[in-house]
C-alpha cells in the first residue's frame, strides 16, 4: 500500500527519517485531520482529569481540595495488601472472573453460530430480538427473578428437583452453588446481547465462500469450522483481549445485589469488599488506590494479550 502512494515522494532525494515522516504526513494529512476531533474529546474528557490517579498516593480530603492534601506514598496500597481479607477477596475475584471468561465468553459465540444456522428468517429475527431482552433489566430485577425461580420455598427449580427425588437446595444461601447462580444469571442476562457483535460480523463473510464449499461437498459443520469461524476470528480476538482488561471486575454491581452474608465466603470480591469497608466514610484515596491496582493489572494483561496474539496469530488490536 505504501508503494502505491509512493509517487508523491521524490525517489532521488536522500530518504532521511524526517523527510519520510513529512511525506507520510503530507500524504495522509486528511486521515490525521479525521483523528483530531476524537483526540480532542479524549484529551478533554479522559486525559485532563487523569491527574486524579495521584489521589491514590495522597491522603485526599475532598473538602481541603487536591493541592492541600498531603502526599503519603504507597500507604493506601500497603493498606490494601496488608488487609487480612485481601487475599481471600482477591482469590474470589480471580476465580469468578476465570469462571466468567471460561464459560460466558464462548457462550455468545456459540449462540451466534447456532443462530446463524437457523434458516427461517422470521424465526431467526424473532429469536434474536427476544434473547437480548434481559440486557434491559436491571440487576435488582434479575436478582428478584432468580430468587423466585430458585427459592427453596416454592421455587420452580426446587419443585422440579423434588419431582425427581432430589433434596431441595437453597441456591442463594449455599456456598457450594452460589457461584453457579452468579454465572448462570450473568449468562442469562448478557449472552443474548453479546451475540450482536458476532452476528454483525457474519455479514462480512463472503457468501461466495459458502457456495464454493457446497460445491466441494462440505457439510454444515465443515462450513462452520472452515468459513464462519475464521470469518469472525478477528472480532473474537478483539473481544477476548478487551475482556482481559476487566479481569478484576468480577461483576461488582451484580454481586452487591445478589449476595448475602451467608455466601460472602465464595462471592466477596474486591469491588464488594471495598464498598462495604468504605460505607459511611468516603475514603477516596483508598478507593482510588484499589482502582489503580486493578487498572495496572488490566493494562498489563491487555498488553500481554496483544503481544501474544501478534506473535502467534499475526494480528492484534494494534
Amino acid at each position: 500500500m505504501k508503494s502505491a502512494t509512493a509517487p508523491l515522494d521524490k525517489p532521488q532525494a536522500k530518504r532521511n527519517y524526517v523527510k519520510r515522516l513529512a511525506a507520510d504526513v503530507k500524504r495522509d494529512w486528511d486521515l490525521y485531520a479525521l483523528l483530531v476531533p476524537g483526540i480532542l474529546f479524549l484529551l478533554l474528557f479522559k486525559y485532563a482529569p487523569m491527574y486524579g490517579i495521584t489521589i491514590a498516593f495522597k491522603d485526599f480530603n475532598i473538602f481541603d481540595g487536591y493541592d492541600a492534601s498531603p502526599w503519603v506514598g504507597w500507604k493506601h496500597f500497603a493498606k490494601l495488601f496488608s488487609s487480612p481479607d485481601f487475599l481471600h477477596v482477591f482469590q474470589n475475584t480471580v476465580i469468578l472472573s476465570f469462571l466468567k471468561i471460561g464459560i460466558l465468553f464462548p457462550l455468545p459465540i456459540l449462540i451466534a453460530l447456532l443462530l446463524n444456522e437457523l434458516r427461517r428468517m422470521l424465526f431467526k429475527r424473532a429469536i434474536q430480538t427476544v434473547i437480548y431482552l434481559p440486557h434491559f433489566l436491571s440487576w435488582v430485577i434479575v436478582s428478584g427473578l432468580f430468587i423466585d425461580l430458585l427459592s427453596s420455598n416454592g421455587g420452580l427449580v426446587n419443585k422440579a428437583m423434588a419431582m425427581i427425588g432430589l433434596e431441595p437446595i437453597s441456591f442463594f444461601l449455599d456456598n457450594s452453588v452460589f457461584r453457579g447462580v452468579l454465572i448462570t444469571s450473568a449468562g442469562w442476562k448478557e449472552t443474548g446481547w453479546s451475540t450482536i457483535v458476532y452476528l454483525a460480523a457474519f455479514a462480512t463473510i463472503d457468501p461466495g465462500l459458502y457456495e464454493a464449499a457446497k460445491i466441494d461437498g462440505a457439510g454444515r459443520m465443515k462450513q462452520l469450522w472452515h468459513i464462519t469461524l475464521p470469518g469472525i476470528a478477528p472480532i473474537i480476538l478483539l473481544m477476548f483481549i478487551l475482556r482481559l482488561g476487566s479481569i478484576l471486575e468480577a461483576g461488582t454491581e451484580q454481586i452487591l445485589v445478589m449476595y448475602n452474608p451467608t455466601v460472602y465466603k465464595v462471592s466477596d470480591v474486591i469491588g464488594t469488599y471495598v464498598y462495604r469497608m468504605g460505607l459511611g466514610n468516603q475514603d477516596y484515596s483508598f478507593t482510588t488506590a484499589v482502582g489503580v491496582f486493578e487498572s495496572v493489572i488490566a493494562f498489563t494483561l491487555v498488553l500481554a494479550g496483544n503481544a501474544l496474539s501478534r506473535k502467534y496469530l499475526q494480528r492484534g488490536i494494534w
Binding site: F45, P49, M50, Y51, G52, Y284, T288, F299, W318
Partner: peptide, 19 residues
Amino acid sequence: LMFIFTMLFSGGLIPTYLL
C-alpha cells in the same frame, strides 16, 4: 495505545466533576 489506555485508567469522579 493512547485510546486504549483510557479504557483501563481513569482519573476518577472527583477531577471529572471538577472539569
